[in-house]
Design a protein around this nucleic acid. Structure first.
Length: 388
DNA sequence: AGCACAGTAAACACGA
DNA sequence: ATCGTGTTTACTGTGC
């Protein structure tokens, strides 16, 4: 593997989001590939992973087979992965996916059927499984919803992207914002004016002619112009990064769904099914944004001039279905490396290891604990969401 | 200071 | 006439 990596000290690496366990396989190039199995064994000491406090089978020098799932490209944008080379950790910058790949991926936005209201959560969530003496962390819910750190453009963008057809009437945008951000439920009505103002003024959004035979009600539908989608995503990502808000919206999708992982132990073999990965990638409720986010270059150009001289025809939007067949390539898929997330010392750690690394049982137990951690974290998210 | 950008308010037109 | 939608202008605040 060619890499312009540089050696880094072996230090825990925190993530700006509660990451979790998943594996990125040397899977070929397609995210559709399923049920790949990798034989991994991982020496604990170089990773500073402490032995599991409760060993299910302490003497078994077992190796494990981990059925794996592709890596969410967004994760690479949030922190540079490390990989292990002997005793050194290297920054895997060269393996990170291109910005376009990252930024056109909205999987994180759609991994949850309903987007929870934005409430701050700790960037790293202490987990009772690993630190039983610690009190169970509670989400810091403000007494009244605070204003989301997202601009109206971002809010509109998220609303539209969260709609099944990637187009919404103004009223639908209002409703999405109110439902997703309780702040606006009680806010004065001026923000609606701001939304309309933004829709009209921003080049990022386009009006779509409504087919009068199909719709009732006032107004047009609004969509995101693909040529501005990259910029909108970048703004959104920066807002997430700078404010450090959790963002249920921006959370690692694997975290959100990871609690559903089926971890079953059979003798000394652990299989982590990637069926949920497929669920993530092809959720029926969110068909458009899970797999059909090709790099920006694969989008056709916006059929309009950027100055609102025209409006989009419904036919012009059909490209979304047409490009949906193209799959976003896992940035590590051909690298021969796997990616490891685990929780340690109150922080989630993030490692990239050679694909032929062997994991022993203790490591697997840690991974299992991490799976439990996912569940705990997911519960916290639900709490933060307030049963939305 | 100048500029860009975001947010807010307001006025106005249009159509259901 | 009312209301929602869409456009435009103006002003203010903030950050670079």
């Amino acid at each position: 593997m060619e890499s312009d990596s540089h050696t880094l000290p072996l230090l825990p690496m925190s993530l700006p989001y509660p990451a979790t366990l998943y594996h990125c396989l040397p899977l070929s190039s397609s995210l559709l590939q399923t049920s790949s199995t990798v034989h991994v064994s991982l020496p604990l000491s170089p990773l500073s992973i402490p032995p599991s406090p409760t060993s299910l089978c302490p003497t078994a020098p077992a190796s494990v087979h981990l059925k794996t799932q592709p890596l969410s490209p967004l994760l690479h944008t949030l922190s540079p992965p490390l990989f292990l080379d002997g005793q050194n950790l290297h920054c895997l910058n060269s393996l990170t996916t291109s910005d376009e790949d990252d930024l056109t991926c909205l999987n994180w936005l759609h991994q949850r059927g309903n987007l929870l209201p934005l409430q701050p959560l700790p960037k790293t969530t202490p987990l009772p499984q690993l630190e039983p003496q610690d009190p169970i962390p509670t989400p810091h819910l403000p007494p009244s919803p605070s204003k989301p750190p997202y601009s109206f453009s971002s809010l509109i963008f998220m609303a539209i992207e969260d709609s099944p057809d990637k187009r919404l009437p103004v009223k639908g945008i209002y409703e999405w914002i109110v439902n997703s951000f309780p702040y606006y439920r009680a806010a004065p009505g001026g923000w609606r004016n701001s939304v309309r103002h933004n829709l009209s003024l921003s080049k990022s959004f386009r009006r779509i002619h409504r087919d009068k035979s199909q719709f009732v009600g006032k107004g047009s539908l609004w969509c995101v112009c693909p040529e501005y989608r990259h910029a909108l995503l970048e703004v959104l990502r920066k807002a997430h990064y700078y404010h450090g808000t959790n963002s249920n919206l921006l959370n690692n999708p694997v975290l959100l769904e990871g609690a559903d992982y089926e971890v079953s132990m059979v003798c000394d073999t652990v299989e982590i099914s990637d069926s949920h990965c497929q669920t993530l990638l092809s959720s029926p409720s969110t068909p458009a944004l899970t797999l059909d986010n090709p790099p920006l270059s694969s989008y056709p150009l916006c059929p309009l001039t950027p100055d609102h001289e025209e409006m989009v025809n419904m036919e012009a939007m059909e490209y979304e279905e047409e490009v949906g067949e193209e799959m976003e390539k896992d940035p590590l898929s051909d690298s021969g490396y796997i990616e490891l997330h685990y929780y340690q010392y109150h922080q989630y750690q993030y490692l990239v290891l050679p694909g032929d690394t062997e994991l022993d049982l203790e490591t697997v137990q840690i991974l299992q604990l991490d799976a439990e951690a996912q569940e705990a974290a997911g519960s916290l998210l639900d709490l933060a969401g307030g049963g939305h």
